[in-house]
Write a protein that binds this DNA or RNA. Structure first.
Lengths: 204, 204
DNA sequence: GCGCTTTCGCTACGGGTCGTAGCGTAATGG
DNA sequence: CCATTACGCTACGACCCGTAGCGAAAGCGC
């Protein structure tokens, strides 16, 4: 008999504080234990909530970690530094700083790996993490085009393809440098990468 | 084969057939179950060996999957196609084909994620997977230099840095395209990527 | 052949995590 | 005051882990 209107009115409301506590506890557990040794029971204990509360809000470990890591990317911005090269260096630097944090290193690749067999999880990652990054690429390109640093683009389909391409190159390079090669994406590296991205291999 | 003389001689030798059976079973399990649901008991059953045999040869799931996936990269070659662009397209195409296989998709990122907290595992990945790929980059660059497509490089330290950089860009882009963006690195994409890599953003 | 050594298959076990069910209590809105 | 929903807590079967112990098998040196 739900008096309808919206299902969201009757009963005790969910504690918003619990949400933030759980996500913070998840990140703390990622730092201390890493992905594989992280257990939901441990996260619940750290957050001061019951394990059942956790399961009422997230389907499982994968989705929880995606949400916990996604918050790390909230700080990503694209400040206008005056030139395309400076803009690229700026955003890559921010991205590298996030990936240098242990909670991101441990969690991000693990959920991406899981997402290869879980369509819903992949969509969750895409909407809460990837899409936000990709928007920076689109904005940066249009800004450079307004400055005259890049030729105007007529075909919108072609424009979308190159934006995707550039995004995969930038994000992929930083991730690979940080997690696979396991060496820091410091200023020297970032300058070299920006030069390669803008001028190509023949000028590097 | 393998005529004696070296340290190991006494006792029953380890079955080489068991090794190949176990690694093949591991890949099959990766395809069917993915990383998270893969259990060593299941792999042992598929391979027709006892679980204890498996633990005698590999420390755990991580190392086993690294070795199983590493074999997929044995086929990686750098055929001489006459130009730098064609060489790049060729090797990227091979790399993309490997990453398109489900056993690579499921396993590779998972072990990389684990390696962020396990130095020995990272070294195992580096020596058995990454180093082999990186050599292709070095060889391709020197070949292009011999053709006159790239300027000669004087400083060997600088040369090493750019080789590392190019490697991270190439491998990272393909991995990101395949696993994060979850779209195929087909011929169209490969051509666009090669053009971006060689000519830079201003020519793309 | 004969032992010595190492590996193999098998069984069994304690320890840990999972995800859920059940229950009584707490916090809202009508 | 009552209906409704969230919460904390406990308990549970199921599963996987990694190891120990056993007898049997398979090479090697003699």
């Amino acid at each position: 008999m739900q008096s309808s209107t919206r299902g969201r009115s009757a009963g005790r409301p969910r504690s918003a504080a619990a949400d933030t506590a759980i996500l913070a506890a998840t990140r703390a557990a990622l730092v201390e234990l890493g992905w594989s040794k992280l257990t939901l029971g441990d996260v619940a204990a750290r957050a001061g909530v019951a394990k059942t509360t956790l399961y009422r809000r997230w389907p499982g470990k994968n989705e929880l970690v995606v949400d916990a890591v996604a918050e790390l990317f909230d700080e990503l911005r694209l400040p206008d530094r005056g030139s395309l090269a400076a803009d690229v260096e700026g955003v890559v630097s921010q991205f590298a700083a996030i990936l240098a944090r242990p909670e991101a290193r441990s969690g991000l690749m693990a959920v991406v790996a899981e997402s290869t067999r879980d369509e819903a999880l992949r969509e969750r990652i895409r909407s809460s993490i990837v899409e936000r990054q990709k928007r920076l690429v689109v904005e940066g390109k249009s800004r450079a085009r307004a400055r005259g640093e890049l030729p105007p683009q007529t075909d919108p389909a072609e424009e979308g393809r190159t934006a995707d391409l550039v995004f995969d190159v930038v994000a992929g390079a930083v991730v690979h440098r940080t997690l696979v090669s396991a060496e820091p994406a410091d200023d020297t590296w970032i300058r070299g990468f920006t030069r390669l991205l803008l001028g190509g291999l023949r000028e590097a």
